[in-house]
Simulated scan of single mutants.
Amino acid sequence: MLKLKNINTFYGNIQALKGVSMEISEGEIITLIGANGAGKSTTLMSISGVVPPRSGQVYFMDRPIHTMSANQIVSLGISQVPEGRRIFPYLTVLENLDMGAFLRTDKDGIKKDMEDIFDLFPILAERRHQAGGTLSGGEQQMLAISRALMARPKLLLLDEPSLGLAPLVVKQIFEIIRKINTESNTTILLVEQNANLALKVAHRGYVMENGRITLSDSADRLLENEDVKRAYLGL
Rank of each mutant, 00 (worst) to 15 (best):
I177T: 09
G138L: 11
I123G: 07
E209V: 15
L135T: 02
T134Q: 14
V191E: 08
L143R: 09
L190H: 13
K154D: 08
H129G: 12
L168R: 15
L155T: 07
E115Q: 15
D119Q: 13
M150K: 10
R212D: 03
E115W: 03
I180G: 09
K171T: 09
V169F: 04
S184I: 00
L157T: 10
T214K: 13
N185Q: 15
L149F: 07
E175A: 13
G164I: 12
A202P: 07
A198I: 13
A148D: 04
E183Q: 14
N194M: 10
R147S: 10
A148Y: 10
L197A: 03
Q130P: 00
A148H: 11
E115L: 14
G138K: 12
E175R: 14
G205R: 07
M208C: 07
Q172D: 14
R127S: 08
V191C: 11
G164S: 11
R178W: 02
I123S: 15
G211A: 01
Y206T: 09
I213Y: 06
L158Y: 07
N196D: 06
P122Q: 10
E175H: 11
H129I: 06
P122K: 14
R212F: 01
E209Y: 07
A125M: 10
Q172I: 05
L190M: 10
I188W: 02
L165P: 03
Q193T: 09
S146R: 09
E183K: 15
A195T: 02
N194R: 13
L155D: 08
L168G: 00
N210L: 10
Q141Y: 06
E139W: 01
S136D: 02
N210A: 14
L149V: 05
T186L: 04
L197E: 13
L124M: 05
Q193N: 09
G137I: 11
G137R: 14
E160S: 11
V170R: 15
E115F: 01
A198H: 00
A151Y: 04
I123H: 12
E139D: 09
R147H: 05
L157R: 13
V207H: 01
M114D: 03
D119E: 14
G133A: 11
N196F: 03
N210M: 09
A144F: 05
T134P: 00
Q193E: 13
V170T: 15
A166F: 12
I117Y: 04
E192T: 05
A151M: 09
P153T: 09
K171D: 14
L157Q: 11
E139Q: 15
V169C: 08
K200F: 00
L149P: 06
L189E: 06
L199F: 06
A151G: 10
Q172R: 15
E183H: 08
L163D: 03
I180H: 10
S136A: 05
F174A: 08
M142H: 00
R127M: 14
L190Y: 15
T214Y: 10
T186K: 02
A151T: 12
F121V: 05
R204N: 12
F121Q: 03
L165M: 13
Y206W: 07
N185E: 14
R127G: 03
M142S: 01
M142D: 00
F118V: 13
F118E: 06
L165F: 05
S136K: 01
S184Y: 11
R212P: 03
